[in-house]
């Protein structure tokens, strides 16, 4: 009895799996491979600052040529350049202010622990609980700015990434300067 139950369900599952596998092969929809490649370049935080519903929507619009390569504020100048190279268009980068990599920071003196910022954080980069001061995980923050809008006390601000022992690096060599 037990064997019959196990065997029959196993066979059932296998048959359905095989049928669906065959169906997936015959009914496959050829997506635009460019969309997937562009989506890889985008930050993937689905912040919606570009006005499209998430990074997939933005990637589709970019692939169809319906959006400028400078549409992604968190990506900044580097992303605009990468997208322009990928799509083979000349990008007007003058409009993209390059603020350098930014990161969200909580001012602990005025944080009231309302939890609104970490509810909107798309990358789970803010940690906190009600009535507790929140803190930002620097590794996870993409500086999308959603928390800045959500904060009622203006305690969250975007700051340039602070130089630490881990993030410090030599400056790039200046062209033409010989030591």
């Amino acid at each position: 009895m037990l064997v019959a139950a196990v065997v029959s369900l196993t066979i059932l599952g296998t048959v359905f799996g095989l049928l669906l596998g065959v169906a997936a092969r015959y009914l496959r929809v050829e997506g635009n491979p460019l969309v997937a490649e562009i989506e890889q370049l985008l930050p993937g935080s689905q912040c919606g600052q570009c006005g499209y519903p998430g990074c997939t929507g933005a990637a589709q619009a970019l692939a169809e040529g319906g959006a400028p390569v400078t549409l992604c504020p968190p990506g900044g100048r580097a992303l605009a350049q990468a997208l322009a190279a990928k799509l083979g268009v000349d990008a007007d980068l003058s409009g993209v202010e390059d603020k350098g990599p930014m990161i969200a920071e909580v001012k602990e003196e005025i944080c009231i622990g309302c939890t609104r910022c970490f509810k909107v954080c798309p990358t789970d980069a803010i940690m906190g609980a009600a009535q507790q001061i929140h803190v930002v995980f620097r590794e996870a923050c993409t500086a999308c700015g959603k928390c800045v809008d959500a904060c009622p006390t203006e305690s969250v601000t975007l700051q340039p990434v602070p130089v630490t022992l881990q993030s410090w690096h030599w400056h790039k060599p200046q062209a033409g300067s010989v030591a």
Binding site: L19, L20, A23, A24, L27, R28, V29
Partner: peptide
């Protein structure tokens, strides 16, 4: 799942 594939196609 099959319906989803069918509709997508």
């Amino acid at each position: 799942q099959f319906t989803e594939m069918l509709i997508r196609k």
